[in-house]
Design a protein around this nucleic acid. Structure first.
Lengths: 311, 311
DNA sequence: GCGCAGCGATGCCTTTTAGGCATAATGGAC
DNA sequence: GTCCATTATGCCTAAAAGGCATCGCTGCGC
């Protein structure tokens, strides 16, 4: 036997069960009373159970009718909610958003973006994934990640990856306040190269050495890395000791703050950018698009902030 | 805007979403492919969200489609369950059944009936209410009780109450095995009346004294209640002591068991019945009817058991 | 590179069914 | 009994689902 029960039957039944009167329920539903009468009859025949007791003064619910009313209300509510959820998902206001991020590079844009996004789309669960650059790309490609906030990936891995720059940071020299160079306003590449440098470990951070090559390309001298650190924290410690200076991103200031001083490199324009990474193929969900919009807005505000005097 | 989404749309959508192919889904649903195509289009237009990505090799679900598929499956399942519940309720296999009972009188019929009923209708929650006779009637009338298992109510309170006898018990004499009367096979009213009797308290059990009046109506002598007890337990203790004998229902044997001996009253045919009490007006639920059937069956079996030899 | 196979969409017509109108049947209240 | 409000029935109309033929698309194999 085919079930042909439709939501219409349920809508009609709840109306009658609530009005306890076919005529009034029909008026409310904007259908004629006989049409309503017949639909309810069809429903009862289909279920095979009397749901209503008719009388010349209206109707009463049988105990089966009472149970069915509860069920029916719940069902109609859930049907509405289902549609609402799907619409919310399409508007980017529902669902999950998996965002990969590199903690240090994203330090400036991510926290305010997350805050703004949660305010704009509170029903979206944002799942943050702290990932290294290569793993982030892998997970963007396999679809477990919607977006990544990262430094610009090198061309050889970014085949199916789209990168959109949000912020560009120059490199500068970080050093302890007591270091002799701290008296200078800016430094030249030759000067820097004459000093022993604090850097990241050659094994784990090959891209750092590629960067140094780029920075020092204009001059003949090559810098000497006297101390190799395994991360920005140990680098900070080493620099604070005051024995050496280091080439770092402007962003370093955001992380390390006022414990060090920073000096421009007068004869270098090298910079790196951080931004949004996503796949070219797979569509970013609406929530992802919304998050991108907010990231762009945050980046725009950060740019304007810089031109204003510090608060 | 009126929602005209129907369960048909959901059924069709799940079919397509599971087959990932309109043609095959249509075949499964036994409708033509264009009809299915159109229904799905209608659904998408109504929700205002694309649920499927069409391609010449079939369809894939959008993320909205995936969410809607989950929701839809759940909804269709719940709709089926709702109908199943209502049908089960109508068959007396679902819902709640509130049964009032007087513990002592119902001791023989109720336990086996409950066991049999729970086996026959495991999804019905039977709520047992241990109630005194007058409260039971009140709660039958106000509808919080479907059935009562009790002694026959007196005519003055049973206006809207229907009583159906299940079992009839004679009265007999209970006494300690060591009592002189224990040697006799049966006792006469005159003999009994000559002895001091153990009885129930005059204050709480007026019907017990009406009963004694009925039993001793055929003879001139009136029995003398030497000890008044506040219930069957204390009566049992008193009788075991062996100082006196008591007039009790045959049922007493079921409660007190072999700790006492029981003797027929040869010249009395007085008896009392226990049975089902229900309202005349309010319909007993199907589960209630089912329970009544089982009670009758249990009573029938008890009657036959008696004719067979014990053991 | 072209045709073919398989798929979904479209146009048009048929069938089914929901719905409307008039009216009958029902059954308490007086 | 009559009246009244209420639900049910009969008949017709309108709307919507469904069926058939066909188109258009696209990816694959030759």
């Amino acid at each position: 036997m085919d079930l042909t029960m439709e939501l219409r039957h349920l809508r009609y039944f709840t109306a009658v069960a609530e009005a306890l009167n076919f005529t009034r329920a029909a008026a409310q539903l904007r259908v004629a009373q006989p049409a309503l009468s017949r639909q309810i009859q069809d429903l009862e025949v289909e279920i095979g159970v009397d749901l209503l007791r008719r009388s010349p003064r209206g109707v009463t619910l049988t105990s089966e009718g009472k149970l069915f009313l509860e069920e029916t209300r719940e069902l109609l509510k859930r049907a509405d909610e289902s549609v609402a959820k799907v619409r919310a998902l399409a508007r980017g206001e529902y669902g999950e958003l998996h965002v990969g991020y590199a903690p240090s590079p994203s330090v400036e844009v991510l926290p305010p973006a997350l805050a703004a996004f949660q305010k704009a789309a509170p029903r979206v669960r944002v799942v943050r994934h702290d990932l290294a650059s290569d793993e982030m790309i892998a997970r963007l490609l396999d679809g477990t990640l919607h977006l990544g906030i990262t430094v610009e990936p090198s061309a050889d891995v970014s085949g199916d990856i789209l990168f959109e720059e949000l912020r560009r940071y120059r490199f500068c020299v970080a050093l302890a306040a007591g270091h002799p160079f701290a008296r200078k306003k800016s430094l030249k590449l030759e000067e820097i190269a004459s000093q022993p440098l604090v850097g990241l470990s050659r094994r784990d951070y090959t891209e750092y050495y590629q960067l140094l090559d780029r920075i020092f390309a204009p001059v003949k001298t090559r810098p000497r890395i006297a101390v190799e650190c395994d991360g920005s924290t140990s680098m900070l410690t080493e620099l604070e000791a005051g024995n050496a200076i280091g080439i770092v991103s402007e962003l370093f200031r955001r992380i390390a703050g006022r414990r060090l001083v920073y000096r421009r490199v007068s004869d270098s324009i090298e910079s790196h950018s951080i931004g949004i990474a996503r796949t070219k193929k797979r569509d970013v969900t609406p929530a992802g698009e919304k998050f991108c919009d907010i990231l762009r807005q945050v980046a725009r505000e950060l740019r304007h902030e810089k031109t204003k005097p510090k608060g």
